[in-house]
């Protein structure tokens, strides 16, 4: 086969497979994905708005809040607001990735996104989680003063159970995402 036209004809004469899905299925699937991504962004914005509003109220009333409730609540809601904001920025960033760029440029663009996502999954997630628990922890001694012993023990047991469960869930989720991100980055690099 020493003529390029023969190679081209060999290529174009491949028998096409019978299409499993028709064009209507493709449009319906695309619309479904767009709606689902819009819904996720919508929920993210709702969560961010609520936490930002609570954070605003805490900041307004900060001078009148007694130690350690002011700094404790501030740390807790600041961490949630920060994490939610970054998640929304990440969602919008992903939606705005331009898949119609030449491959090399697209690769650079998507690598930047996935590296940022990796930082978000590791450093940012665990820093905000630490800030959240720090905020909560400094309020525990004050709870002891305000609550009856039985209630306090109940709260303490709840925390001792829920914190490890929540942490394990979060670490597992982060590990899964990190594994996926590392695979993509290794492929693109």
């Amino acid at each position: 086969m020493n003529n390029f036209n023969n190679i081209q004809s060999l290529w174009s004469n491949q028998e096409p497979q019978k299409q499993n899905k028709n064009v209507d299925y493709i449009k319906a699937e695309a619309k479904k994905r767009m709606q689902s991504s819009g819904r996720r962004l919508g929920w993210g914005i709702i969560i961010l708005s609520i936490t930002a509003a609570i954070l605003g109220i805490i900041i307004c009333y900060l001078p009148s809040l007694k130690w350690p409730f002011g700094p404790g609540l501030l740390a807790m809601f600041l961490s949630v607001t920060l994490r939610s904001s970054l998640e929304i920025i990440s969602m919008i960033w992903k939606q705005r990735l331009n898949i119609a760029l030449p491959t090399q440029q697209y690769k650079c663009q998507i690598l930047r996104y996935y590296r940022a996502r990796k930082t978000l999954t590791t450093t940012v997630t665990f820093s905000t989680l630490a800030l959240y628990f720090a905020g909560f922890s400094i309020m525990i001694p004050a709870f002891y003063g305000y609550m009856q012993t039985l209630y306090f023990i109940g709260v303490l047991v709840f925390i001792l159970v829920s914190v490890p469960v929540f942490s394990i869930f979060l670490i597992k989720k982060s590990k899964e995402e990190l594994k996926e991100l590392n695979e993509i980055i290794a492929l693109l690099d």
Binding site: N20, I26, E29, A30, R33, N98, I99, A100
Partner: peptide
């Protein structure tokens, strides 16, 4: 199929 789904989703980028 995935390519055509992307084409529909990203049609605004034309």
């Amino acid at each position: 199929q995935e390519v055509f789904i992307k084409l529909w989703e990203k049609q605004n980028s034309i």
